[in-house]
């Protein structure tokens, strides 16, 4: 049997009195790439944040690499180290005096108390390698607040890749990128997934990309509506059930074959 990286069972999440995620169960095999799709307000980001321990859950269980996520989002530090999260965006207000190399270094550091100079040479080497892997060597001395959206995504990917990880959770990673930049970003992500052996869970609105690159799909609209391979879960009939009538015909005529 394949190793399970993430197991979610009967997860229910409430926010401000109403149930936004209802009794969701699924699990992710090692090195799978699974997309979480669904209409706006379906609870995708909420689900992802509950899995990370950012939001509290009402009931249900989350197990990451076989370790239970505590009620207040606690995981052993050794498990946390192998889990990375790439948010939709980070809202930096005004000039933020933190260089990209320092930021990536924070991804390398482990949880807990430590003096700033700990790790010195090993950290610098890991940061340089991570930036090289994402093609961001030139960004090292830039300020994080000076980066364009595309450059910031690269910096965030470097933050993930700076230490070996098992599970990568992405929340609409393509948001804010134009189609060319989104294409580049997914190419990079696809390569890194294979070379690093990552298991990926990604919230996505780009169904064409999901069809091309993902191995599995979870369709969420408060509860899990269907799941399976992209061919099955993203069939016109399933999409109509998920998004409602009228949406499917519009999106289905996208020329998905325009790239080689």
């Amino acid at each position: 049997m394949a190793e399970m990286i993430l197991e979610v069972s009967h997860l229910t999440i409430c926010r401000e009195g109403s149930t936004v995620v209802d009794d969701v169960s699924f699990s992710l095999e090692a090195e799978s790439d699974t997309a979480l799709v669904g209409p706006n307000g379906a609870g995708k980001s909420t689900l992802v944040q509950a899995i990370l321990g950012v939001l509290p859950r009402r009931s249900g269980q989350v197990r990451v690499l076989g370790h239970s996520l505590g009620a207040r989002g606690q995981l052993p530090a050794a498990v946390r180290d192998q889990l990375a999260y790439l948010p939709q965006s980070i809202a930096l207000r005004g000039r933020f005096p933190l260089s990209v190399a320092e930021f990536v270094g924070l991804g390398w550091e482990r949880a807990g108390l430590a003096l700033p100079w700990r790790g010195g040479r090993a950290r610098r080497a890991a940061v340089a390698l991570a930036l090289a892997k994402v093609g961001g060597e030139a960004l090292a001395d830039r300020l994080v607040s000076d980066l364009s959206t595309g450059q910031l995504k690269r910096a965030l990917l470097a933050f993930c890749v700076v230490r070996p990880r098992r599970l990568l959770v992405l929340d609409e990673a393509q948001a804010g990128l134009d189609s060319r930049a989104a294409e580049q970003f997914h190419g990079l992500l696809f390569d890194l997934r294979r070379s690093e052996g990552w298991t990926i869970l990604q919230v996505s609105h780009d169904l064409d990309m999901v069809r091309r690159t993902c191995s599995g799909v979870l369709c969420l609209n408060r509860s899990l509506r269907c799941s399976g391979t992209p061919d099955h879960a993203l069939s016109p009939a399933q999409l109509e059930r998920l998004y409602g009538r009228g949406w499917v015909s519009y999106h289905h005529h996208h020329p998905g074959a325009s790239r080689g």
Partner: peptide, 23 residues
């Protein structure tokens, strides 16, 4: 501040990102 520098900076950048790193 010296000992918790990593947590302080991560928390200042983005709270969900910080929590996902165990802060």
């Amino acid at each position: 501040l010296l000992l918790t520098r990593r947590s302080q900076i991560l928390l200042t950048i983005d709270e969900p990102l910080a929590i996902s790193r165990g802060v």
